[in-house]
Design a protein around this nucleic acid. Structure first.
Lengths: 138, 138
DNA sequence: TTAATATCCTACCAAAACGGTAGGGATAAT
DNA sequence: ATTATCCCTACCGTTTTGGTAGGATATTAA
């Protein structure tokens, strides 16, 4: 399951997606509108910035903006930055690989199936973008 | 990510799958062969029994056996019993549903995408069985 | 140059989940 | 009665989660 933090990240990014191309949006603004604890959100947005998805501006008139078009930010990237691996096991993770102990990867059947599951999930998460999670009418 | 406990469960079940139709297998046997801490494994096998996947026999000559054919136990079920929800968010979980706060499910775009992701993952995990994770030669 | 407005940084904290361990009780076979 | 096995309850240290607190730093505007 995704952490609450990741859900907050999605909501915040969806909010910023709506204001893409406009003035920077303050943390406090997003916090209120999306009902996300302010200081926690500060942390989240800062991480997203370090991951190169956001740009920030300090002082009056400051805030956050998406660095690239919402169409170019896919859901897998967001999850990886805030939540970590998408794969079900470390030994099949593309971005957070870790060898498992007492397991021969060449013959491990569990691993084989988890690769198939991973690819099925990634096919969706890497294709869908922030544009796909914007709040829609009806 | 799946917990270590879930990985242990898969290994233990794969072991039992090999001995399906034969004498009961002792916890201690599985513990040694699969390198799983004994007391922890006790706990795991007992949970799988309560979930109706295993049968047990006490006393000499006792142990655990799969209750049904390895072909009939799919990976999704194992994960749900030991690890919990497969979906990425509680509000899209089929077996562990929880409403999310401050979110209108009808219009929430995040939810829509997470349903698609969930279905892609489930299509694999519900189709693959214990038979598919047995250790293979080459 | 000073005040106001933002983000940024470090540190802390409580509660829950994870990954076990300990010790004995119940039951079945010999 | 003894031995072998699963079963049950309770505990426990470490890590992760979901925050909070307080101030440092940068920008703008008066």
């Amino acid at each position: 399951m995704l952490s609450k933090k990741t859900q907050y990240a999605f909501r915040a990014l969806a909010h910023l997606a709506v204001y893409y191309g406009k003035e920077p949006v303050r943390i406090s603004e997003i916090s209120i509108q999306q009902k996300i604890p302010l200081k926690f959100l500060e942390n989240i947005l800062n991480e997203l910035k370090k991951a190169d998805m956001l740009e920030s501006k300090k002082g009056k008139g400051g805030g956050y903006v998406l660095k690239v078009s919402p169409k170019k930010i896919n859901l897998a990237k967001v999850i990886r930055v805030i939540n970590g691996p998408i794969a079900l096991l470390p030994c099949v993770s593309l971005n957070f690989y870790e060898k498992c102990i007492d397991c021969d990867e060449a013959t491990c059947g569990i691993r084989k199936m988890m690769i198939v599951a991973r690819d099925a999930t990634l096919k969706v998460l890497e294709k869908k973008t922030l544009n796909d999670i914007l709040f829609t009418e009806s």
